[in-house]
Design a binder for these strands. Structure first.
Lengths: 208, 208
DNA sequence: TAGATTGTTAATCGATTAACAATC
DNA sequence: TAGATTGTTAATCGATTAACAATC
């Protein structure tokens, strides 16, 4: 596989979008697709699509024709690493946590295996259990990935606990700047900031 | 206020983070803050913080001291436009939609005024109403902003309906490339892609 | 005054875009 | 062959970083 370093964050964000489009086309029994085609669909430039694909695609496209859809899917999935199962836990079984537990749009390498909550009334001893059992569970199942859907105040302390237990990747929905040691990756999903950005864009549109 | 055009998307994403930190400090009755300080806290470079602040800040910092926290908050809020109330509707009152309805982390300019669902059993005639009443409601309340928390298949047709009714900003949680006319802004919140990106980063960390 | 920090101007870096020969 | 599209090499663009004089 190609070197990971070569792929920018921006490109990394586009890959899942390509993947989705490609799978869509495969559904319709289409065999090939051109960068022009992809670009039109996703509002990108053909040259950018080609650049991106060149970074992750083992094979190559045919001039005048395009790319083999199946090859592309295989290579992108391979690159993204979505071909190996990952067990994920959720901390905080509030509405957001439950939404993610039941979300069926994730790539099929994602397996949400358990949710934890500090409110015993939310626990059902099946897929939502009491937060005190976190240590035991994470160790036994060797969990590496956790989702934080808890209030900001609790986020850092839970994060510390998770890191101590060997969790290496945290998807954080709490509006907090988590501090983690080297080697642990965090992705902040700042819903408030996201909506604010949208509204700011709108304001700009209106002012035009 | 400064020209909107000058601020990059990347900077725009940082502004809410500054805002949060600043408000935090204000809580503790701290009056000033330096770019060094902000940078350390948010893992940025001081020079970048200064550059960002220069873009939105009317006043200016004092060499050797830093910035007035109150001024900064005022100016950033002003710039982001979070000082004017916005009425927002949610389409799709599933778990995710309900999570957002009850989310209390939004800037206080955001008012979620109604949710709609096509499943009558989810409707309560209070804050969740039947989707058929969309037209009437959006027109009467002059809604400009909508959140889409519905399955991908329904997203485009609902989007079209919203656009026809004059909605100008769409926060889309459905994994779909929405097609909208010029002048309508869309922000895609692709949860699956987001998690995939995190896991890819993790893979890269492991390979190091 | 000495130390800290600002804002300006210039340099660097990385990503996007353009141009085009090669090829199906 | 003509038309479409690829991948390479170079140019452009924009954002981040560095250097530093000015100033509290």
């Amino acid at each position: 596989m190609k070197e990971r370093t070569s792929v920018s964050n921006a490109c990394l964000a586009r890959l899942p979008r390509y993947l989705r489009l490609l799978k869509d086309r495969r559904e319709s029994d289409i065999k090939t697709i051109s960068s022009t085609d992809i670009a039109r669909e996703l509002k990108l430039k053909p040259i950018q699509v080609r650049k991106d694909l060149a970074l992750v695609n083992e094979g190559s496209g045919k001039p005048g024709v395009g790319f083999e859809i199946n090859d592309l899917i295989y290579n992108i999935e391979n690159y993204l690493g979505v071909r190996t199962k990952k067990n994920v836990i959720i901390i905080g079984a509030g509405r957001l946590g439950q939404a993610l537990m039941n979300y069926n749009g994730f790539e099929n390498d994602i397996q949400i295996v358990m949710a934890f909550d500090k409110d015993k009334r939310k626990c059902n001893d099946k897929n939502i259990i009491y937060i005190d059992r976190l240590e035991e569970f994470v160790k036994k199942k060797r969990i590496k990935v956790a989702v934080l859907t808890i209030p900001g105040d609790d986020a850092q302390s839970i994060c510390d606990r998770l890191v101590r237990l060997g969790v290496k990747a945290i998807w954080n929905f709490a509006p907090t700047n988590l501090k983690v040691p080297e080697g642990v990756v965090v992705k902040n999903e700042d819903l408030s900031a996201s909506l604010t950005m949208l509204l700011n864009k709108l304001k700009y549109e209106e002012d035009k």
